[in-house]
């Protein structure tokens, strides 16, 4: 699958995606492609789509790191934030399933969720390819119905878990405890060291 609507602006995807017009056009493009592939038809709620985008943009700007070496990790996190905004805002509803649709297939079990995940993975892959020359593929969890049962149930209760699930579907290591807080890989590795250093300093101070 690919992300369309590049025609709207010649900017790189990481910049284009921060424009509502591009977001709407590329999301519609994604919906059309999945509809053609699966036979599922959808309705897009334009106003809700705009709200989801603006919610995402606020969350994106709020945690955007200044450090250049955190940028790569932030691409995956930002894609997760987008999935969270889509899952929360639900700008898509299924109009019809094709006859005999096999609901043990994730694309038919939760078609809206499947579109959201596919879109976010595509945006993520496009930015990683353009800016970091990385080719990305999905993880086996993407095709496992059990992952989708868990994804749907858990994000119903807590949409921030969508960030962790997108990591799972893309083969990254998910943070299930505080998925909504950005922590670059470098910081995750260093954190125990900082913690120990703090304990030592504390002991010396006594």
């Amino acid at each position: 699958m690919s992300v369309g609507a590049h025609h709207l602006t010649p900017l790189p995807v990481r910049r284009s995606v921060r424009r509502l017009r591009w977001f709407k056009a590329s999301f519609r493009d994604q919906v059309d492609k999945l509809s053609a592939a699966t036979g599922v038809t959808f309705d897009i709620d334009d106003a809700k789509q705009g709200q989801s985008f603006l919610e995402w943009l606020r969350a994106f700007e709020a945690q955007k790191p200044d450090e250049t070496d955190a940028r790569r990790d932030y691409v995956g996190f930002a894609a997760g934030l987008m999935l969270q905004a889509l899952v929360r805002g639900r700008p898509l509803t299924v109009r019809s399933l094709p006859p005999g649709a096999d609901t043990s297939n994730p694309a038919y079990y939760w078609p809206e969720g499947y579109v959201f995940v596919a879109y976010c993975l595509n945006i993520r892959a496009a930015v990683l390819a353009q800016d970091f020359d990385e080719a990305r593929d999905t993880a086996p969890a993407m095709d496992e119905i059990r992952s989708w049962w868990s994804f749907r149930e858990n994000t119903d209760a807590d949409p921030s878990l969508a960030i962790a699930f997108l990591d799972l579907f893309s083969g990254e290591d998910p943070d299930w405890t505080t998925p909504g807080v950005f922590a670059p890989e470098r910081l995750k590795v260093d954190a125990p060291r900082f913690f120990r250093a703090a304990q030592i300093a504390d002991a010396k101070g006594r």
């Binding site: 602006t9 709407k24 709200q51 603006l54």
Partner: peptide, 21 residues
């Protein structure tokens, strides 16, 4: 405008959504 493909009504709706937010 992005060229001939731009739908003015859609663009106005988009601006209204951004304004409301």
């Amino acid at each position: 405008r992005a060229g001939g493909a731009e739908d003015e009504d859609q663009l106005l709706d988009t601006c209204t959504d951004v304004a409301r937010a």
